[in-house]
Design a protein around this nucleic acid. Structure first.
Length: 260
DNA sequence: ATGACTGGCCCTGCCAGA
């Protein structure tokens, strides 16, 4: 089965690209981030019409995550445990039954954290701590699990065209990268890196300064696999062509293929 | 060398993104 993550930067602005992607690539599961809309304005009907069910955790104006699936979604959770007062919609999780058993999938929109001298950076670090605690609990289930999303983390220098330009930025600070390594060390596999060690595998190019034309990208959209999912890893794809469309998202979809 | 965009909302400059 194929599972894809994509920060669409407004699902309503990107609806035609989204439907194009679902028709042409037809992943089994698509995790979306930055819906920038509420549940009632989510384009559920158009998406169901091309064969997907939707679990949505929206928010007015900002954030918002969803999971689209060809098969029914069960056990849907909205928001991370331990943050009942957090009004930002950045996490949704569900379970999909397949012939070989079940796969649990989360759509994650990790906080950006800039500017680093504001409350936004401590919020990012606290959020990463909550994610790690929940991820540890999910690993104990010993089932195929994919934590897919926009992590707003540049893991290593090879994940940026110009690493020096990101020094001091919330996406690349040593503490940010250390928190990401702590998450991985719980037992996750970075799917893209397990398949491709090359530098220059980017998933985001800023709208400004001709970043796309000059290939000044970064890799911040990741698919983390539990051991049971990593055992089934068959390949990854960065759908780079989506950045070249008219009025694109600044992120492109990233897919993992699991043998199941 | 410098600056450079896009989307949503309070409908119009401002916040947010990365």
């Amino acid at each position: 089965m194929r599972i894809t993550t994509w920060n669409v930067n407004s699902v309503r602005q990107r609806l035609e690209h989204l439907l194009l992607f679902l028709r042409e690539e037809a992943p089994d599961v698509l995790c979306l981030q930055e819906l920038k809309t509420t549940d009632d304005l989510f384009p559920r009907g158009e998406i169901e019409a091309v064969g997907y069910s939707c679990a949505v955790h929206g928010q007015k104006g900002f954030n918002g995550v969803a999971i689209l699936s060809k098969r029914p979604l069960e056990d849907v959770r909205r928001g991370l445990p331990g943050a009942d007062d957090d009004e930002q919609s950045r996490y949704i999780e569900g379970v999909i039954s397949v012939d070989a058993g079940v796969v649990r999938v989360a759509s994650i929109y990790l906080p950006n954290g800039n500017p680093v001298d504001s409350a936004k950076y401590p919020y990012k670090l606290a959020w990463m701590g909550r994610l790690a605690r929940h991820a540890r609990d999910l690993l104990a289930l010993e089932e195929p699990l994919v934590l897919a999303g926009d992590y707003n983390v540049i893991p290593e220098p090879r994940d940026a065209a110009d690493p020096a330009a990101w020094e001091g930025d919330a996406l690349y600070l040593p503490q940010t990268r250390a928190e990401f390594r702590t998450l991985l060390a719980l037992g996750f596999t970075d799917a893209l890196r397990a398949c491709d060690e090359a530098a220059g595998r980017y998933t985001f190019w800023d709208y400004q300064a001709g970043a796309w034309q000059r290939n000044k990208g970064i890799r911040i959209d990741h698919l983390l696999l539990s051991p049971e999912a990593a055992d089934r890893l068959a390949g990854t794809t960065i759908h780079k062509h989506m950045r070249g469309l008219e009025k694109p998202s600044d992120h492109v979809p990233v897919s993992v293929r699991l043998e199941m």
